[in-house]
Amino acid sequence: MNPVRRTLLKSIVTVGMLASAISVSLVKPAAALVASWNKNAFSAKTIADAMKEAGYSGAAESGDILLKVPDIAEDGAIVPLEVTSNIPGTTSIAIFAEKNPNPLVADIQFSNGALPYISMHIKMAETSFVRVAVKAGDKIYAQSKEVKVTLGGCGG
């Protein structure tokens, strides 16, 4: 047996395995994004339509949704927001900015140990209510809070 030939063959096999491992990791991100984007909900022009299209109509007001937003936002381009749902069985939270051209900002689904909590930065076109809706079982709950915007974040 030729030891040089052995080593060479081994290294070829290793390179081949590495290459396939790399291609697998590159393919992964695409496979993880399976749900289709809800175009109707995100392009709705009124909060009522947006809530309906996103599956959050018929919401009951609930004090068990904690919505943390600033009373006054100097820059509508970055309004920090934090939502915590203390409603048992919460599976998703949707965020709406009432007077934005398209009120639906985001729809978030929680699973496998994720707590019903989200923190994010949103854009607000003008002073308006931020409304968050929560899905728990087959029930919908909501909570709103007004944010005064000094400088709008959607115009130009």
Binding site: F42, V79, N102, L104, A106, D107, Q109, S111, N112, G113
Partner: peptide, 13 residues
Amino acid sequence: TVLDMQWGVAVSK
């Protein structure tokens, strides 16, 4: 998967 989000244009830059 723990978090599955859809975003619109009003998520900040």
